[in-house]
Structures are given as C-alpha cells and as structure tokens.
Design a binder for these strands. Structure first.
Lengths: 244, 244
DNA sequence: ACCACATAATCAAACGATTGATTGATGCCC
DNA sequence: GGGCATCAATCAATCGTTTGATTATGTGGT
C-alpha cells in the first residue's frame, strides 16, 4: 500500500510517447499538486512520490520548491497568452476578437490531450490572484499586463475612444471575470447546475454564450455613453452616473 | 520588539467598545490570516500571536485548527446571505432585485466598520471554490445552494420560464462571477486600472454598473430565446445554438 | 468579612510528526 | 574515468497539538 517502486512505469513505446523524462514528470505532477492543494499544502515529498522521482530532484533541477513553482507558473501562462494571437487586430470584428480571447481561457482547442491540465493551470493563476507570490507579480508585469492592455484598448476602440477610461476598465474586468469563472467555479457549477458542463459540446456552447454576453455588454456600454453625452451636453453637468 | 505582554490593550471605555474577548480577537485575526495566507500557510502560532492569546486557546475554544477555520467560514457567510434579504420577491423589479443581491457581495453598506474584513471573507470563500475543504461543502449545501436557487429562479421568472434551464444557469453564473471578481481581483485591478477602485464613491458606482450589466445580459438572453423560438418554429429543428 | 471550593481562562513548555533542504555515495552511459 | 542522474539518509526548523500548572472569577457557607 505504501511502496510503489516503479520510477519509469511506461516502457519505450513505438513513437507516440517519447517516455517523459524525470524532469517533465516532476513538472507535470507539480502542476497538478499545486493547483489542487496550493503552494504550501503541496509537500515536496508528495509531489516527488507522485512523479516517481527522488526528493533531491527538486534541488537538482529547479534549485528549490519555489523554483519549481515558478517554472510551473511561467510555462503555461505564456502558452495561454500566446494562444490569444493577435485578437486586438483592428481588422477583426468584435465577436471574432472576443472569441479569440475567450477560447484559450476556457481551454477550448487546447494543445494538450488532457483538458484537465489546462483547467489546473487556470486554477493556479486564480489562486495567485488571491494570494500573490513574489514570483507571480513578476509574471503579471511581463505577460498579463500587456495582454490586458490589448484587451482594454480593443474595447475602447469599439466604443469610439482612443484610450480606455475607468468605465472601459470595469467592462474589461467583467468580461474576464465571466471567462475565469468557468475555470474557477467548475466544482460548484457541477454541484448547482450539472447540465451546463456535461453537455456534449459543452465548452463550445459556453463560449458561444460568453461571446454573446460580451456583445450585449459592449452594446450596453456604448448606449450608456451616448445617453451620458447627451445628458451632459443638455445640462452642462459633467456627472458620470446616469441610470444604469 | 518581540514581547507585547498586554492581553487586554484597551481599558474599560464608556460604552462604545465592550473590550473584545480573547475568543473574538482570536476569531478576528484568524479570519484575516486565513484570508491572506490560506489555511495551511497560516500557522496557529502566527494567529495567536497576532491576536495576543496563548496557543492553547485554539484547543480551548475551537478544539483544533480546523474547528477555528470552520467557525471563520460559517459565521460571515450566513451574514452575507442573510443580507440578501428577500431579493427574489416577485414584487421587486429586476434591477431592484439584482441590487439587493449584488450589494452584499461587493460589501456595500456592510455592518462592519472595517470594509477590508468583508473583502477578506469573500476571498476566503473564493479560495474554497478552488480547493473545497470538507467544512466548506457542508456550508455550500446549507446556505449557498438555497441562495443560488433563489437567484436562478428569479432569472427564470424574468425570462418567462417556470423553472431555470441550462442557459439560465449559465447566465446566473456569469452575473455572480462579475460580482465575485471585484473581491477577487482587487489587487490586480489596482495594478492594471487604479482609478476604478480609488474613486470617492467607487463601490456605489461599481454597483450601478453591474446592475446595468445584469439588465443588459437579461435583455440579451430574452431576445436570444425569442429568436430561438422563432427559428425552431419556422424550421422545426430543435437546435439550441443560434448565432450569439 | 472570611475562608473553602469550583469553574473558567490563560500560561509556558514540550510532544511527535512533518516540512524543505542538503549531503555524500551509487549506478550508468558515453 | 568523468560527467550525469538518482538514491537513501539526515539536517534543522516549524508544524499542530497537548499537557500540567497557574491565575482570575465567581459561589456558597458560616
């Protein structure tokens, strides 16, 4: 029950699986462990045992636990952001752009064979938003911030603005929040409304809905700004909160 | 620097502050610690030192660390859900209902003097959605599930349905996600768009926008359903995914 | 008023277990 | 034999928990 002394379970297959190295196994298991249990709760012994490697391998390959964690974070996040592509291309329609932006977050058409890995990585990042580690702040400034600026800039453009203002920022956060929630609240969603995620083409349908939501919110924001502009032009008051 | 041997710092005031007991101090500091560092990362010594109580107090008042954690979770969540009031009252308009529902989540008009406590507690619950503890699942079924059923039921009613279907559930999750995000991504929001949360009436304005978003999404969903109904009636295909 | 007793609350100290990190030796392949 | 990778074993530190004693707060009897 306690001992499973098989460090390399899969033998040399034909060609499909090139027998993942100890480093890769360690990194993969660490991703899963960190996502499920968090940084502190996931012990190095646990991770190494699941990966079938010795405890000293962490020091050997990554220096220490935080180095392993940093690698676990940095790798997939750049992958997702790269998957965005040029979603802020002015040639694209708003729906096309939002679809390009939302699809990688939901994990649609992910490169991995196992879709749960994508979800685990998203959970890791969402956990970091609650409890930012020093490693994460660095990742944010290098990768997430440019992506967010591209999003808010695109939203501003579709609202007829040259630069995003606070209302655009709020709209951007609302859109991102809707997408993130489908990685974050998955367990609760299965508990409260099992049908949404168990349908055959569940993720595609969720993506369709979210794109529709985004369009509705953009139209709402455009309309609100027009009403605000008319109101301020009529009364001369530069107030910023008309009804809804 | 190390020793602060004053277990009861504030002397007997007039009447405003009844000198919080050791149990209350412990509970308050535990809430802050758990919210900031998580369950495992927050050590019992740390919590007790911050609260100015002995380590054995945890065993004395709550049995063990998990008992303290359970109390930390259960208390404020029932408080928030009770603050919803009867938001699903059929007499209310949709905007009135959503305002009653969203305000407690954002922490508007909270009973606490310190608004950061409310945010901390929300972070605790969001963390639990990523890593549900046994204590949390019990809390979900007892308190969150009824509140969610009230929300999805109200949404279904405003869409002309007797019971919520999968599309209503997805709409409900999107609305909750938008509100949760303002507790969850606060740090990142301050980093990416500082103006949104630093305005004088920031929370009230955010609430106004979210209520507007909710209305826009509801209208979008109603329109989508009408278009779907017309399309299926015309072609006879019971498909469920028309464009946006 | 005084003592005896009981309960509640708090304390310092230590328990065993587990943590992340580190060492020096070992097998292996080119 | 010389890098490369892996191993068992152990380090000091910290973890949550527990103990037994000590102080504070009442309570009732005489």
């Amino acid at each position: 029950m306690t001992d499973l002394p098989l460090p390399i379970p899969r033998s040399a297959d034909a060609d499909a699986s090139p027998a993942p190295s100890a480093r890769d196994r360690l990194l993969r298991q660490a991703t899963a462990m960190f996502a499920v249990k968090g940084f502190t709760a996931a012990s190095t012994r646990e991770i190494c045992e699941a990966a079938g490697v010795n405890i000293a391998s962490i020091r050997y390959y990554f220096g220490d636990k935080e180095g392993l964690y940093r690698e676990t974070l940095l790798g997939p996040i750049t992958e997702v952001i790269h998957a965005f592509g040029r979603f802020d291309d002015p040639e694209l329609s708003f729906e096309e752009a939002m679809r390009m932006f939302l699809a990688p977050i939901l994990g649609v058409a992910s490169g991995h064979k196992d879709p749960s890995v994508q979800v685990q990585v998203m959970k890791l990042h969402l956990r970091e938003m609650l409890e930012p580690s020093p490693a994460f702040r660095q990742v944010v400034e290098q990768t997430i911030l440019p992506a967010y600026q591209a999003l808010s800039g695109m939203l501003a453009r579709h609202c007829g603005l040259r630069r995003p203002d606070d209302d655009i920022h709020q709209l951007a956060f609302a859109l991102v929040a809707m997408a993130n929630d489908y990685c974050q609240s998955r367990e609760m969603m299965k508990l409260l409304a099992p049908g949404v995620l168990d349908r055959p083409r569940a993720l595609e349908q969720v993506l369709d809905r979210l794109v529709g939501y985004a369009h509705a919110l953009l139209d709402h924001e455009v309309g609100r700004r027009q009403r605000t502009a008319i109101a301020t032009a009529a009364s001369g008051r530069p107030e910023s909160t008309p009804p809804s």
